[in-house]
């Protein structure tokens, strides 16, 4: 895999999709604000909101940021439409699947969340969105070394063989970033002998793929199955690409559970993530209980946002005994 180009200033690449007047005002902001910038939120007829860890303000009409909504820059429907066109490359048909999931990934791995009027199909599922009213440009920042904190738990101490890991946390705690870094570390060999890594990326979140091309550096020995359903993808990976570490995110359904059991029985180390605020909470889910009882995972890593995204709270072993508090 070619290493993806990643700008030193990730926001400068992300804001290319914005209308010129918004872009110029953002570029003129002081770097102290730009470094914190995580989200640029656009809504029809509403002020442009800038959001970050310690940042929540409007983009001011005359430049700079403001708390006062009347002095803020507002966008009309046309401007929102032009952003949507830049994001979708004027091809709604090409991002149908993505729109259904609620966001589109753009070059650089940045994500644009979309809200509007949902159009349903005959079965009550969302077919697409029309009349887009809100856009949320989420700036992706490469976070190399995010997995250093759990380094001593990822491999079997005796053989150096990769262990199966489950990363558990509420949303927004850096699960995907951690998965990405684990892929890179294993694949590049910075965690002992380099191994083949397979990523099944159902929602193009781990690799941030645009048109199947990963936008993040995931290491030289990594194969990415982009946009493929997890359960099916895991089996495809095992059958054809013989990964030693198989990475996927957001497990939870019955078929995920079966595919995971299949993978761990095939001797593949699985690294996955799940939404939950504690290990006990995760175990209460029906299919996940099965995985726990089968000891499919050797380690459970609990994340929080206590010291910013990606804080490792606890690491548990296969039977749920705490190994360490980091």
């Amino acid at each position: 895999m070619a290493s993806a180009p990643m700008s030193i200033r990730p926001w400068s690449q992300a804001i290319r999709v914005l209308p010129a007047d918004v872009r110029q005002r953002i570029e003129a902001l002081p770097s102290s604000i730009l470094e914190q910038l995580e989200e640029v939120r656009l809504r029809i007829g509403r002020p442009v909101q800038l959001y970050g860890d310690r940042l929540d303000a409007y983009l001011a009409q005359e430049g700079g940021v403001t708390e006062d909504a009347t002095r803020a820059l507002k966008l009309d429907e046309r401007a929102i439409h032009s952003v949507l066109q830049a994001v979708t490359q004027a091809s709604l048909y090409a991002v149908e699947e993505e729109l259904r999931r609620g966001f589109v990934t753009i070059a650089g791995g940045h994500r644009v969340g979309v809200a509007g009027r949902a159009v349903l199909d005959g079965h009550g599922h969302v077919r697409t969105l029309r009349r887009v009213t809100s856009l949320n440009l989420r700036i992706a920042r490469p976070c190399e070394g995010a997995a250093e904190a759990i380094r001593r738990f990822v491999a079997d101490p005796a053989s150096g063989r990769p262990l199966s890991l489950l990363i558990v946390s509420p949303p927004g705690c850096g699960k995907t970033t951690l998965l990405r870094d684990i892929a890179r570390q294993w694949s590049s060999g910075s965690w002992g002998r380099p191994v083949k890594v397979g990523i099944v990326d159902e929602r193009s979140e781990i690799s941030g793929a645009v048109d199947g091309i990963p936008q993040f550096d995931l290491g030289p020995r990594t194969d990415v199955l982009d946009g493929c359903p997890k359960a099916e993808g895991m089996l495809m990976m095992i059958r054809s690409l013989s990964p030693q570490v198989l990475i996927t995110d957001e497990i939870g359904r019955a078929e995920d559970c079966e595919a995971l059991l299949e993978a761990t029985h095939a001797g593949v180390a699985v690294v996955a993530s799940a939404h939950a605020s504690s290990l006990d909470e995760w175990c209460t889910r029906p299919h996940m209980r099965t995985l726990f009882e089968h000891r499919s995972f050797d380690r459970y890593v609990l994340l929080s946002r206590r010291h910013g995204p990606g804080t490792v709270e606890r690491v548990y072993d296969a039977v749920g005994r705490p190994l360490a508090t980091v």
Binding site: Q89, A90, S91, A94, D211
Partner: peptide, 8 residues
């Protein structure tokens, strides 16, 4: 192939 318009 759902190619985006510019490339298509």
């Amino acid at each position: 192939t759902l190619t985006p318009l510019p490339l298509a």
